[in-house]
Design a binder for these strands. Structure first.
Lengths: 340, 340
DNA sequence: CTGAAAGCGCTAACAC
DNA sequence: GTGTTAGCGCTTTCAG
């Protein structure tokens, strides 16, 4: 069972051909007859041959390794799915992921990138765990790179981010369609693209319906449960309180639930709530379930790898693309018609 | 700026020595005078030399890559920290992580492992995202491997898991110390090590205080918020209801909070709650904050890499170890003295 | 259509 | 102490 690792020459010997022919057969190169190609393949299979990627990478200048650089794999709970999407797409391309985490520290990041380059990664996915504007580290210049959940002002770089404004419009459309007209927005205060995008979507959706933007229905707080609760309480204390709340994210929405409880308002009978994140551990756990817009983490992960593969192959369509991905609505039980 | 990649021979030429001397200087081998060693190092630095790991790995049979195989990087939100711990420890050892995700599918897992082996990883961390008993895939026989958040019956394999019983004892000690005597346990129903360990800890803690085990105070439900809520409601409806609840995990604890609300019980005035996970998005968000036992994800990640490094170096202490890591209590506001 | 041979960039015997 | 040299296992011209 513990047989010695078989190499390309053993296969060649067994098949009665040269190593060249074996190499060509397995990697589809050269001009071989289908007959030999198949025969060699089956011999290799029978011998349980597996290539040494170190050797082939060294020679061919293709390691089949993609570097995955991210700011914080862990801290944020959504994180995982972008890695998962990337990893599955990579596997489909016969590539593998080498991951490095900067923990928001550029020295650590540079060391990580250096390690990836020493291992001769074919390209790099430069990822953020939530949508951010970034500047690409200098060490990456000249290396095929795609930005994931991150954008930059460089048009020569492909990137993918969620369509923030669209997400907000989708959320608002759902509320408007249920009949709501006084809709509050529990916004956030960070200086990130989502802040502008979601607020813009909120305003645009209102404008489309000819509903005037009412500043007193809009708050800005830290995007966590406690501050969200306070902000929601303020809106709910208004004489003419909103009948629905659109929340920047699920954590704020959880605060809104708590505020509703404190104000003895029942969801969705007295108050409807929609938010963004579809963070299941919260959205499913809240009572009633929270209707929320999902961010396309998995899909962005896949897209980034596929784009990178296209650019590495540079056959034709390798012009950089900057795209925004649509964000689907996930229905639960937090929206109903407005109270009358 | 786009200068050609410099190799060991350029360094040799620039320093006026042979490639051997350069190799020895940089990797601490051979018998060189400190003078040359330093000189070569600084020349290399000046030339911005960086080794090609593909080449050195091919020759030395050491890729400096560790394979990280896990069942689901993403689905569970705690996940990230074990990867983070592993990745940081690896970086400290000049190693890098190649990650592969099986998504609970053994065919996918086998393909992933095969890819790792083709890339000649030096060893493998076989990780689960929550404590489980596992059987090592056959493909891994003969490869240095350590189990992370997973255990097996093989004594020739190192492994690290949380001390489940200890975690439960810690939680209970906290409640007992606050004066509680009637403590309910909201358990789970999965057949996993945590199920037995935490229940055992609950019983042991009670026994130590001479408190009789009362079956009517123990429930078993799915470990999610909804079922937890129902289970908690049953206990709280008891004539002689418990004054405190120890919960299998934070999601169940969230259910307990909801049940308390429904029963008009205030936490911690009327009911104290402790649980396990310290899943911050919930524990911090709940009102009041949930006192919970943290699982040592980051630490287990580090430990696994360090153990693997020791076994790869096999200098001395390379005997396999199976350890259980302690789980610290994280205080918030959900525990108070029992109502009188 | 197939094979011989020259490296990819580095490490490790073994000489000097 | 330092240098020469033979590969690691594969891919890829270039001949036949």
């Amino acid at each position: 069972m513990m047989s010695k690792r078989v190499g390309i020459r053993e296969v060649a010997a067994a098949a009665g051909v040269s190593v060249t022919t074996v190499s060509h057969s397995l990697s589809g190169g050269g001009q071989l007859s289908d007959a030999t190609r198949e025969r060699v393949k089956s011999v290799a299979e029978g011998l349980n041959y597996a290539p040494n990627r170190l050797a082939s990478g060294l020679r061919s200048k293709r390691s089949q390794i993609i570097g995955f650089v991210s700011d914080e794999i862990s801290t944020t709970p959504y994180a995982g799915n972008v890695l998962l999407g990337a990893q599955e797409a990579a596997a489909a391309n016969d590539q593998v992921l080498m991951v490095v985490n900067s923990n928001r520290n550029s020295k650590v990041e540079d060391r990580g990138i250096e390690a990836l380059l020493q291992h001769r990664v074919d390209g790099i996915i430069y990822a953020r765990m939530y949508h951010q504007a970034v500047e690409l580290p200098a060490a990456l210049s000249g290396i095929p790179t795609v930005l994931l959940d991150a954008s930059s002002d460089r048009t020569d770089l492909s990137s993918v981010v969620p369509d923030e404004e669209g997400a907000a419009r989708t959320a608002m459309a759902h509320l408007l369609q249920a009949g709501h007209r006084r809709i509050g927005y529990l916004g956030n205060i960070d200086d990130i693209p989502a802040t502008r995008g979601r607020l813009a979507g909120y305003r645009a959706a209102l404008a489309e319906q000819g509903i005037a933007y009412d500043e007193s229905l809009v708050t800005a707080s830290e995007s966590m449960t406690g501050p969200g609760r306070d902000a929601a309480s303020r809106l709910l204390a208004l004489a003419d309180r909103p009948t629905a709340l659109f929340c920047f994210n699920d954590r704020i929405a959880m605060g809104a639930y708590q505020a509703a409880h404190l104000a003895s308002l029942e969801i969705p009978r007295d108050l409807s709530i929609v938010s963004i994140d579809n963070f299941e551990v919260l959205a499913d756990a809240l009572l009633p379930g929270l209707t929320s817009i999902a961010l396309p983490h998995y899909e962005m992960g896949r897209w980034a790898i596929e784009r990178l593969a296209a650019e590495l192959a540079d056959d034709a369509d390798s012009a950089p693309q900057q795209i925004q991905m649509p964000c689907p609505l996930v229905l639960r039980q937090s929206v109903g018609p407005p109270p009358r």
